[in-house]
Design a protein around this nucleic acid. Structure first.
Lengths: 246, 246
DNA sequence: CCATAAAGGTGTACGTCGTACACCAACGGG
DNA sequence: CCCGTTGGTGTACGACGTACACCTTTATGG
């Protein structure tokens, strides 16, 4: 009975099929449904079989990240570094949006795999090619942080009203009561959280356009980088100035 | 034998002692050493005893976060919003530095506890008090992201050479070989990563001052906010402009 | 002061997880 | 055809969170 499916011989596993299946599973079921056991089941194979193709779960996750990084558009050449960076980041963002688990994986571990390093290297290259000093580029990369992957820590919970999923169901009247509580205790949050709703014409929707928020912060940073670059900013001089003020 | 230690009656547990112990344990041993079993052991109590004080592990983590938020300095009043925000963030940063696990906890979950909401509310208040529009404040908060907690996603692995811990030990010659590999394959990373080392006089040290990096990005954003505020930025107008360009 | 209910602590047990290890099946090159 | 290498199986172990039934301590109010 082993190795048979419907009387047909089963295709042999390989690292790529494992990674591919893991990505699909995580895409569809979420990261915490991704266990070695479940993945094995998905591939019609006993859990331990996977260990012939990946050393352990950590390596599986690394492999998955490597796999999706290849989906990010390569850097575009050309004179306009700002636009190049912008496009690259937004491409990464689109990818990470397709694979929502990836963010958590990138956040939770220090990923030193070749694809990650390669991506970072080519990212740095965009600034250096634009004439940024190595010094400034260093700090710029730090300032970009996880934004090079197209995501930022989300502070507000925008999962309310997200379809499907296994969110806890709450009765409408309870929801209303919670709203009242928040309104009373956290008036500023209330104001700011609902701000996006009424200044957007009659669009009901989510009330907050994540993509816009992301680009807002991204452009703010890019503009800042540009200014510093133009005025020949160096960290040495910034630190000296800091000492004199402090 | 139960309830006895050295013939002395044991102090009763309560939610606060549990939370306190959990924070200490996480501080000292790291987040993945924090299990209900280990925590019970630390308190000289059977694991299930903890469930009389916290509903489950999730709630324990929430409680821990609440506990450390109280360590953040309250907002300072006064005319200079920029400095107020700056101080607040740097205070939060100092706290999160003391409790390194907190970052992971804040990252991995949507924390809607009163202390978190209270902190965010008072954070928003700083901008509103400075005359920022609700609209701009909304976007500003998004742009701040996890920076309101004083941390950013770290991209470079700066754990190399960190004392203690359970890092994998690597022979020096292997390390050198790895370095060669990286140097060859990722020349830009090499340049940028080592940049901080030689422009800092003769300081050997870590080669990269995290605090400086954090403040660099923070100030870049704050300056950006200030500029937008001064020129009366609104999201409606920004979106219109975006449409005309795009 | 004692009965009694509430609150705090225990012990056992279940289902999950990652994965070590010994084993067997299939394949491919001599 | 044989046999070593590679891929897949089965069993088992030690974590984990936590449900549930039970006992012990404490506080309370008649």
């Amino acid at each position: 009975m082993t190795q048979q499916i419907d009387g047909q011989r089963r295709v042999r596993l390989n690292r790529n099929r494992v990674l591919q299946a893991a990505v699909s599973l995580a895409d569809e079921a979420g990261l915490d449904e991704l266990s070695m056991r479940r993945l094995g089941q998905e591939l019609g194979v006993v859990p331990m079989a996977l260990y012939k193709h990946v050393a352990n779960k950590e390596e599986l996750l690394d492999g998955m990240v490597e796999a999706i990084i290849s989906e990010i558009d390569p850097a575009v050449g050309g004179a306009d570094w700002k636009n190049a960076v912008r496009l690259r980041v937004l491409s990464a963002r689109a990818v990470l949006q397709r694979h929502r688990w990836a963010r958590q994986v990138l956040e939770s571990r220090t990923n030193q795999t070749p694809a990650v390093l390669g991506y970072m290297d080519s990212f740095i290259a965009m600034f250096l090619a634009a004439g940024f000093s190595v010094d400034l580029t260093h700090h710029v990369m730090h300032a970009m942080g996880s934004r090079i992957w197209g995501f930022t820590q989300e502070l507000f919970d925008d999962s309310a009203g997200r379809g499907g999923g296994d969110a806890v169901e709450v009765a409408p009247e309870v929801q209303a009561a919670m709203f009242e509580q928040i309104a009373a205790r956290y008036p500023n949050i209330l104001q700011v959280a609902t701000a996006a709703r009424h200044d957007e014409g009659s669009v009901v929707g989510r009330g907050c356009d994540d993509q816009f928020e992301f680009e807002f912060a991204l452009d703010l940073l890019l503009d800042g980088f540009e200014r510093l670059h133009r005025q020949g900013w160096t960290s040495r001089q910034a630190k000296k100035q800091q000492r004199n003020e402090g």
